[in-house]
Design a protein around this nucleic acid. Structure first.
Lengths: 112, 112
DNA sequence: ATAGTGCGCTATCAAAATTATAGCAAGAGG
DNA sequence: CCTCTTGCTATAATTTTGATAGCGCACTAT
């Protein structure tokens, strides 16, 4: 199985492994931000709840993303299922504004 | 060729096409955020400059991401090459804080 | 006119990631 | 024991991405 991108090591997109590039690699994987988003809004959630909330994710991918997010320290397993860690919550705080922006974007695409 | 995710249409991750899910689909594609980031910092850039700045991106993928980002209204072509649009700059403004966060994350991974 | 040079890509094929689907193993409740 | 739920694993099909070659055009120098 392949490891998570680690700052300081070469990652997809940067041989130098600039931290931000490692993070973009990690979060840019399909579903990664979606899982974090969904979980942050409804924690704690069981595997199947999460799967249902994500509508179309497959268990293999969900499991892989969870493993990565856990290894990265954004998500943990506890009572009641999966939940975000404090670090994960900070990450979510950063992507949350995308929600409002997305609405403007939608309007932009309609309008012109 | 496949279209960009559009808010209001089913996208990967949401049959309802919540705007944020469409945006996460678009930006979650490999290299999408990296290209936006790189471009926002060095605009305007030619295709080849961008390719060089991204170190390991292949021209096929770069071209595809550029087409998507252009269709989404985040990037445009003008004199001197590609540049971000005002909307794209706003998007960049949202992902830029990930840079600082990534450093904390790196420290977190080291520390514990 | 001809021969370079750089640019924006397209073509092609291999490798990797993602998807859909089936279903197993373990624990709970009856 | 039987059934149900939960957390995943297995497998194969499909899509995406990655690496590399090189085309067609514009421009320049010869």
């Amino acid at each position: 199985m392949n490891a998570i991108p680690v700052p300081g090591q070469p990652v997809r997109g940067s041989r130098s492994g600039a931290p931000v590039m490692a993070l973009l690699d990690l979060l840019g994987r399909r579903w990664a931000m979606g899982v974090l988003w969904t979980l942050a809004e409804g924690e704690p959630m069981t595997f199947r709840e999460l799967q249902a909330a994500c509508e179309t994710i497959s268990p293999g991918v969900l499991n892989k993303r969870l493993a990565e997010l856990r290894e990265a320290g954004f998500v943990k397993r506890g009572d009641g299922g999966y939940a975000v860690t404090p670090l994960g919550r900070r990450a979510f705080g950063l992507i949350e504004p995308l929600g409002a922006f997305a609405k403007d974007w939608a309007a932009h695409l309609d309008g012109a």
